[in-house]
């Protein structure tokens, strides 16, 4: 495989709450021969402000992001929704800076969700991961990854290649988990009603692990799975794909 170099955009959520997902991402990429660097100035893509209706703050943060990653060959993030912010929303957010237009256009096309990068760019078919015992895993389609980035087959293909996995499909796998950022707090009751329907489907699938490409959706579903002491536990796809690889723990 040709030597590749990427800049990791770890996302603010993974950095502060789930650093082990970041570590798994690095292990996985290195295992596949990708050189990883971590621009230390990075913080957030601005999605929180954009979705919260504070566009002016999102603009400022987006500008920062462009400056930090402007020289990166490719930018990879273990998140579909943060990549969507860059891919779908940066052109509009930064439209008041016409001098950046070319750069933004190039940047959005160099920014990838992890599985998208592995399959669509690198052409990876299997990662060589293995689970210590046969495990039922359900994949949840995160909305932005699915609908903005077209990420659906890539994660499934990679998951299928894990030794010891039994991949099961959720009923209504494409329906939202009810997270929606601040929506989950502001409209807690509605969010929870949507979430409970999702969890009924997770339960019915008999999955032991629920995986997805976004830590945020997993934080949401996982938080309720823990509260309800469900049998399934959440695990980010980077951690699953890195299980059994050198330098890390097994799933």
């Amino acid at each position: 495989m040709a030597a590749r170099k990427i800049s990791l955009f770890v996302t603010c959520l993974v950095d502060q709450f789930y650093p082990e997902i970041g570590e798994a991402t690095v292990r996985l990429l290195r295992h596949l021969g990708v050189e990883v660097d971590f621009p230390a100035d990075q913080t957030c893509c601005g999605q929180v402000a954009l979705n919260g209706g504070y566009r002016s703050h999102a603009v400022a943060v987006a500008r920062r992001f462009v400056e930090i990653f402007r020289d990166s060959e490719a930018i990879v993030a273990p998140s579909g929704s943060c990549v969507t912010t860059v891919f779908t929303h940066y052109p509009e957010l930064l439209s008041e800076f016409p001098e950046l237009a070319g750069e933004v256009e190039s940047l959005r096309n160099r920014t990838f969700e992890l599985t998208q990068y592995l399959v669509d760019v690198l052409g990876v078919e299997e990662v060589g991961a293995f689970l210590p015992k046969p495990t039922r895993v359900a994949y949840h389609d995160c909305c932005h990854a699915l609908r903005d980035l077209g990420v659906a087959s890539q994660p499934r293909q990679l998951l299928q290649s894990i030794d010891g996995i039994e991949l099961v499909e959720l009923t209504d796998c494409e329906s939202c988990c009810g997270f929606g950022g601040t929506f989950s707090v502001k409209y807690s009751e509605i969010s929870t009603a949507i979430l409970n329907e999702k969890l009924r489907n997770v339960d019915a699938s008999g999955a032991e692990i629920l995986t997805a490409v976004d830590a945020s959706c997993l934080m949401h579903m996982g938080g309720a799975m823990r509260r309800q002491t469900m049998q399934a536990r959440p695990m980010h796809i980077a951690e699953l794909l890195a299980s059994g690889l050198p330098g890390g723990a097994c799933a």
């Binding site: 979705n51 209706g53 909305c143 932005h144 609908r147 903005d148 494409e174 329906s175 939202c176 009810g178 997270f179 929606g180 950022g181 601040t182 929506f183 502001k186 409209y187 509605i190 969010s191 949507i194």
Partner: peptide, 11 residues
């Protein structure tokens, strides 16, 4: 406008 998860199913 705030009471939406922005999931994109509508679009």
């Amino acid at each position: 406008p705030f009471a939406s998860t922005l999931c994109g199913a509508c679009r």
